[in-house]
């Protein structure tokens, strides 16, 4: 029986974070919720694993973090995209599209032609 919530492919979490932050600064919990809702509850990241990825991306200069107040008036750390982060997203998005297109072509091709 297939898993209800499949694991993310390696490297895709960073791409999803870059995508979600296109709309503006968010804290970690909001990002996790957005990914889950946008994928119709299919992609459910292990929320904890989001934080080492966020800190790594901040260190690479793709994100910039600062403390702010959440909607419930609580201190939370907000992340926003830098210029480098935006450029990185475009590159990753193009690579992903190329990858999925190639996979789609293979899946729709007639196996008889390989004989």
């Amino acid at each position: 029986m297939p898993k209800k919530h499949p694991d993310l492919l390696p490297g895709t979490l960073e791409m999803l974070v870059l995508r979600v932050l296109q709309g503006g600064a968010l804290h970690g919990y909001a990002m996790a919720r957005w990914i889950q809702q946008a994928s119709d509850e299919v992609l459910q990241v292990e929320e904890g694993s989001l934080y080492p990825a966020l800190h790594r991306m901040e260190k690479r200069g793709w994100l910039q973090a600062e403390w702010g107040l959440s909607e419930s008036n609580r201190r939370a750390k907000y992340y926003r995209l830098t210029r480098t982060g935006r450029a990185r997203f475009k590159t990753q998005e193009a690579q992903w599209e190329g990858y999925t297109t190639a996979i789609g072509r293979v899946l729709s091709a007639d196996p008889e032609g390989a004989q």
Partner: peptide, 9 residues
């Protein structure tokens, strides 16, 4: 603190 904020939310 960041993780605690996440869990509280």
């Amino acid at each position: 603190e960041e993780i605690e904020a996440h869990l509280d939310a």
